[in-house]
Simulated scan of single mutants.
Amino acid sequence: MTPTTPWSPNSFTPADPAYFKVKLTTWALTWGLIFLASLVPGVLLASGASVPPWLAIIPALLVLVIALLILRILRRQVRALGYLEREEDFVVSSGVMWRKQLVIPYGRMQYVEVNSGPLERRYGLCQLTLNTAGAGATAHVYGLPEAQGHALRERLVAAGEEKML
Score class of each variant (00 low, 15 high):
71 L>H: 14
43 V>H: 00
68 L>G: 07
39 L>E: 09
52 P>Q: 10
60 A>M: 13
30 T>S: 15
70 I>N: 06
81 L>Y: 14
43 V>Q: 00
31 W>D: 09
40 V>L: 13
89 D>V: 07
51 V>D: 05
34 I>C: 02
89 D>W: 05
76 R>V: 03
61 L>F: 15
68 L>N: 06
83 Y>Q: 01
89 D>S: 11
73 I>E: 14
54 W>T: 07
82 G>A: 04
56 A>Q: 08
78 V>N: 03
60 A>D: 06
87 E>Q: 11
41 P>W: 00
48 G>H: 09
31 W>K: 04
50 S>P: 01
68 L>I: 13
46 A>R: 13
75 R>G: 07
80 A>L: 11
29 L>P: 00
32 G>N: 12
81 L>A: 08
71 L>Y: 14
40 V>T: 11
86 R>H: 09
59 P>D: 10
30 T>F: 15
48 G>L: 10
75 R>M: 08
47 S>C: 02
46 A>Q: 14
48 G>Y: 09
35 F>Q: 11
74 L>M: 09
87 E>W: 01
88 E>Y: 12
70 I>M: 04
74 L>C: 03
78 V>S: 03
74 L>S: 02
34 I>A: 09
78 V>D: 03
49 A>P: 00
38 S>I: 00
34 I>E: 05
84 L>R: 12
32 G>S: 12
70 I>F: 01
59 P>G: 10
85 E>V: 03
50 S>M: 07
51 V>E: 04
43 V>N: 00
59 P>E: 10
52 P>Y: 01
57 I>P: 01
61 L>Y: 15
51 V>Y: 02
30 T>N: 15
38 S>A: 15
44 L>N: 09
44 L>W: 14
